[in-house]
Computed example of a mutant assay.
Amino acid sequence: MTTVSTERGALRRRGGRRAGVLLAALLAAGLAAGCTSGGSGDDGRGPRESPAATREADGQDPPPVLTVKIDNAPAARPQSGLDAADVVYVEQVEGGLSRLMAVYATRLPESVGPVRSARESDLELLRQFDEPLLAFSGAQSKLLPLIDEAPLTPVDPGSEPDAFSRDSDRAAPHNLYLRPDKILEDPPGEAALTAGFREGPAPSGGTPDEEVTVRFPAARFTFTWSDADGRWQVSMDGSPATTRDGDRLTAATVVVQNVTVRSSGFGDFLGNNTPYTETVGSGKATVLRDGRAYPASWSRPAAEDGTSLTSPDGDPVNVTPGPVWVLLTAAR
């Protein structure tokens, strides 16, 4: 059994940030997508040193994990880089829509995106990693200071302009992409994954289940077991989820994690409150692997901890090697 957890080094954070360009276009398009900000104008805090330019090796410490906030509006699909992620978190945003947080440790794709704005609950979610890189495009102005104070290294078009580009074939704000090789020479490796999930044999029991649908207020995800792939095929809002090359997105393990989703102190331009997803605490979960569904409980005592999964008997519920999708759904 392999525990996907160990100590590792981190990058120093750098203060200040510039947001990017095309603010007016992003505001207009963001209304339809339920975002607080996807933009990139100057936020008034001045320039920030580039993490790529100032990154020094801390002894033999490996680089941190890369996390990227990814758009999941229909206009953003198919996304780039999701097939290379070690973990994909699905979060609820304004209007009941969903947005993704992809975590990269063992592979760096050529391109990731479309990159979108950060949310307050991302800061708690990412505390489980040691000062990760967070790639995003804008955030509500009063959230930016909280991002600056968080134990992570922000990466946005203002700090790393050479790492981001726009796809002229897509409309803003669904067209901003990150080049991971511009901010990391190599992936940090499996040791950087401290999400708490343990690889190992399947637990006993479970129920055969060939298809499971998980619903958010205005989004749904379906996972269909494929014997040929040995994985769950992903569908979003009733359509197969694919890469930009047309290959089907798959998950080796799916964790449906029932959490508290409450109102935050933030909102979007339409007056919708931004949901805050609590990922510290405990609750019920369902783990999908090997074509079966296993009841489980999840526990994350503190923000610095990963999330453990246990069976009703208290035994660990392991994941199978490969991508893990975690759907953070409101407990009922």
Rank of each mutant, 00 (worst) to 15 (best):
G230P: 11
G230T: 14
R231C: 11
W232S: 04
V234G: 01
V234R: 05
S235T: 03
S235M: 01
M236T: 12
M236R: 13
D237W: 05
D237S: 04
D237F: 08
G238M: 10
S239K: 10
S239C: 10
S239L: 15
A241Y: 02
A241V: 07
A241L: 06
T243Q: 09
R244I: 07
D245K: 00
D245W: 08
G246N: 00
D247N: 11
D247L: 09
L249C: 10
L249Y: 07
L249Q: 07
T250F: 12
T250E: 14
T250D: 14
T250Q: 11
A251I: 01
A251T: 04
A251C: 09
A251R: 00
A252E: 03
A252T: 03
A252K: 02
T253C: 15
V254P: 01
V254K: 00
V254Y: 02
V255R: 00
V255H: 02
Q257T: 10
Q257G: 06
Q257L: 13
N258M: 12
N258L: 13
N258V: 08
V259W: 00
V259K: 00
V259L: 05
V261Y: 04
V261A: 08
V261L: 07
R262G: 13
R262A: 15
R262L: 09
R262N: 12
S263W: 05
S263G: 14
S263F: 08
S263P: 03
S263Q: 13
S264R: 01
G265A: 14
G265M: 09
G265H: 07
F266G: 14
G267P: 05
F269A: 13
F269T: 09
F269P: 00
L270C: 14
L270T: 15
L270Y: 09
G271Y: 06
G271F: 11
G271V: 06
N272R: 11
